[in-house]
Design a protein around this nucleic acid. Sequence first.
DNA 1: GTGAAAGCGCTAACAC
DNA 2: GTGTTAGCGCTTTCAC
Lengths: 354, 354
Amino acid sequence: MNRPIRRVTIKQVAEEAGVSTQTVSRVINERPDVAPETRQRVKEVIARLGYQPSSVARSLIQGRTRTLGVVGYGVEYFGPSRNLSGIEQQASEMGYALILDLVRRPEQSNVEHILREMLARHVDGIIWAVPEIGGNREWVTQAPQLPVPLIFLSTQPRPGIAIANVDNRSGGRMATRHLIEQGRRNIGIITGPLSWWEARQRQCGWQDALENAGLPVSEEFVVEGDWSAASGEQGLRMLLERCSRLDAVFASNDQMALGALQAARRAGLRVPEDLAIVGFDDIPEAAYFCPPLTTIRQDMVELGRLAVRELSRMIEASLEGQTTIEPRAILLRPQLIVRESTVPQGNRTYLFRR
Amino acid sequence: MNRPIRRVTIKQVAEEAGVSTQTVSRVINERPDVAPETRQRVKEVIARLGYQPSSVARSLIQGRTRTLGVVGYGVEYFGPSRNLSGIEQQASEMGYALILDLVRRPEQSNVEHILREMLARHVDGIIWAVPEIGGNREWVTQAPQLPVPLIFLSTQPRPGIAIANVDNRSGGRMATRHLIEQGRRNIGIITGPLSWWEARQRQCGWQDALENAGLPVSEEFVVEGDWSAASGEQGLRMLLERCSRLDAVFASNDQMALGALQAARRAGLRVPEDLAIVGFDDIPEAAYFCPPLTTIRQDMVELGRLAVRELSRMIEASLEGQTTIEPRAILLRPQLIVRESTVPQGNRTYLFRR
DNA sequence: GTGAAAGCGCTAACAC
DNA sequence: GTGTTAGCGCTTTCAC
């Protein structure tokens, strides 16, 4: 392996082209005030030497790195991975690079340490894409004091804080309302871990829908899961034990819905005839569950993109010294996807027709 | 929002503490040659001012950023997301930050551009985690000429190139051998897109196993999918049309296996009695398919970790001027996970016992 | 149009 | 132990 010992610097290019480093700088920055022949000559040298300006040196001078810090959790899951993907797409389109930090214990990650790391690397802004769990947002009031703008994802709105969320409550409402419209009356819920703000929001949506329909909301109908298929399976078993009249379940994500489908099968229940099931997320596999799963789709890619655009807006404002910019709260509406786990195949056409 | 206008610099700390910047530098780098009182005083000032050394400035001097560039594809899929997670974990443990670039068209991404970006940001090494597809590795011979080490993931081994792979061929062999051991004789395969090197490897494994068992290998048994559940569904339908004696299928990933399960169900076939199905990946949902899916598990997290460790080794060697270090090819063996899609429930205990 | 000088924030090398 | 000087690679003044 013959690795070039040192990178080519602006100095070498200048020397080789017989000009000052200044002129080279002008050329690489496309400044107008360079003689055409000079420009040409310099460009040739650059190409020949394979010179690449150091963005590290540039950053040092300009106080701006064109880098965003992303603090994420759970890329191995569907939502967060799409989220990251959207963030990367938009950032890349806007000329930002991404520094990625993934936390593994979202409830108790070392916020201080992560922020110091990001700031040491002079990121221009930070996207905090770790879900709000337990008390892991207690430091939120310090965010505005940071030297760079920060936007939170999946976080309870608070005044003065920039936030981008999917409307989980509305999603829970849509799921449950759909079940009610199918004539279901005894509708259970398998929630996510209730320490998660998003899980609680989905539950609130379920409750909203029941109350709007004048149906009773009972503790008996609530089981807490942990997002896993295993917990969904166990969750449905528990609901069935508690309440034999159960005719529908809202599982707060598709994995738990999958587990619930399996539990229903084992209990000898037909889905949707005996028991209707709705999930949340619309993972690609959901359309191939047995039966295909009705669920709530959330556009996590778009959410990521929106977050980057908003953050960029904040960065620009901050660079221009506008201290008055009001942080926005972005809210993305999810969408109901109807499949056979709630509507018997025969009825489906009918449903779409009305 | 009251954002501090400027960051605190070493100069301010020095002034405030009444020492030279040198001394401050010594303190933050934990050098021994500072008087205890001085150290104490400086530390207090640092804490009071909230000073954070600029790694940008440090990088400029030391010619080293403690940053790895990661070029990835498909974080929204199971394998790549785990991969990224493993990379991040290991990098973080070793004190490296990650700069992330996700390509969206892996066959034809602009390699030159991406490398320039990474090098401009002075990454210490690069992990190329885009799968080998079509001719997208034609530039591979240039890798050793780069100013920093680079390791490829999911790439056909080539001399002089550092690589980390799961042994897909062995995985395909394991899957197929398992089907043969279950007494199956007409074993079809739904491959991934054959422009993918990994997909071809899995197919080679299937062929190996058939040949080892003295079974005929026929074109008729091969259908090309695109990794999606939809293609798996269609793939099985095609196989069934072509060959009514078909008694087993190796689907080259779990999504396609899921689609195949659905097609089998619709064709009125019992799984595994009439048709056995094996997948590849062991996504978490696989255990909850209907029936639970036998599959090949690959530890993508570990693969990511291994890649980072190897890259780090190359970086250290390169910094010490050892030009003779021989790039390694890491190969991770996958593992067969037996579930009910290949073994009728009754036989299962028997199988484990022998 | 082009170059010289200064400096971004930090550390290495040397002096005291 | 501590300070001074120089310089990493680049851009920003400000001359000429």
